[in-house]
């Protein structure tokens, strides 16, 4: 006759002993790093591929997407301004050795937004609000050269390629986890995009300064726009690392350094803006939004 009993089983055989917080920290850290690297790699790759899209293709793409661009203005004074901007862009473009197939199209917008932007297909939009804040043609040229540099380096299409890559990457993550987790994953995935644009802005600034030097022989007033923005921005600057543009102080400083090492003559005579360019310089004190895009 066999015996029957139930001895006590020691604890902890069926349960892993790792501390839940340690597990949590390892997982969060590891997965964040993984996503960062993956999105970084994917968007770099997409950016590189997009760079090889021929400019004509980019132009055609812009034609189908670019309905939002400002129309040719109806008022004669606006048309005059647009022509002036176009001539300025062509001059700067020539100084920057744009490839022959890369043509610039400048659009003028009478809106008082303090902004200028470059987009797909060599389109540049300049807003009256920006022009009103600038003291001279040199300052305007600096801003436009910055935008032209973006186009020259194919930044708009690279940005689009990266954007698509990131959207693709993040939407493929969407199948995993519930709401909160997805949000966190998306946040982590967005981080690399911000740092990319910063390096692009710095590149554009450097190129714009070279163009200024070649066109005018000096870089006087190049920092005017950033100085204006810095003056206007009384509220605290957002964390520099999280903004796509380098801090204004940083930019002004960089331009000064460039000026010191390159300007030959001290007397930097700036070219004034033609009279018809100003709307009403006194009244516009609109708060600048973000600067150049």
């Amino acid at each position: 006759m066999a015996e029957y009993e139930n001895p006590q089983i020691p604890e902890g055989i069926n349960v892993s002993t790792t501390h839940p917080l340690k597990d949590f920290a390892l997982l969060v850290g590891g997965i964040s790093a993984l996503i960062l690297v993956a999105v970084l790699a994917l968007s770099l790759l997409a950016g590189q591929l997009a760079r090889h899209v021929p400019f004509e293709q980019e132009r055609a793409l812009a034609g189908s997407l670019g309905r939002w661009l400002p129309e040719t203005p109806a008022q004669p004074v606006h048309r005059e301004r647009q022509q002036y901007l176009q001539q300025l862009a062509d001059r700067l473009g020539a100084a920057m050795d744009l490839p022959p197939e890369m043509t610039l199209t400048v659009h003028y917008s009478a809106s008082n937004t303090v902004n200028a932007l470059a987009t797909l297909g060599g389109h540049i939009v300049v807003f009256q609000g920006l022009i009103d804040t600038l003291p001279s043609e040199n300052a305007l040229a600096m801003v436009m050269a910055h935008e032209i540099a973006h186009i020259r380096h194919r930044h708009p299409i690279v940005a689009m390629g990266r954007g698509f890559a990131v959207i693709f990457a993040l939407s493929s993550l969407a199948g995993i986890g519930d709401g909160a987790m997805q949000q966190w994953l998306t946040g982590v995935g967005m981080l690399p995009i911000l740092s990319f644009s910063r390096s692009q802005e710095e590149q554009a600034d450097a190129d714009a300064l070279q163009a200024m030097l070649r066109t005018y022989g000096h870089v006087g007033d190049a920092a005017a726009f950033f100085e204006h923005i810095a003056r206007q921005q009384t509220s605290g600057e957002p964390l520099a690392i999280f903004s796509t543009h380098p801090g204004h102080e940083e930019r002004i400083e960089r331009i000064r350094q460039f000026a010191q090492s390159h300007d030959k003559q001290e007397a930097t005579a700036t070219t004034p803006l033609p009279g018809f360019m100003k709307e009403n310089a006194e009244k516009t004190k609109g708060t600048p939004k973000d600067s150049l895009s």
Partner: peptide
């Protein structure tokens, strides 16, 4: 079998 020791699980 000389002894039954009851349920074990994993």
């Amino acid at each position: 079998i000389v002894k039954h020791l009851g349920l074990v699980s994993g």
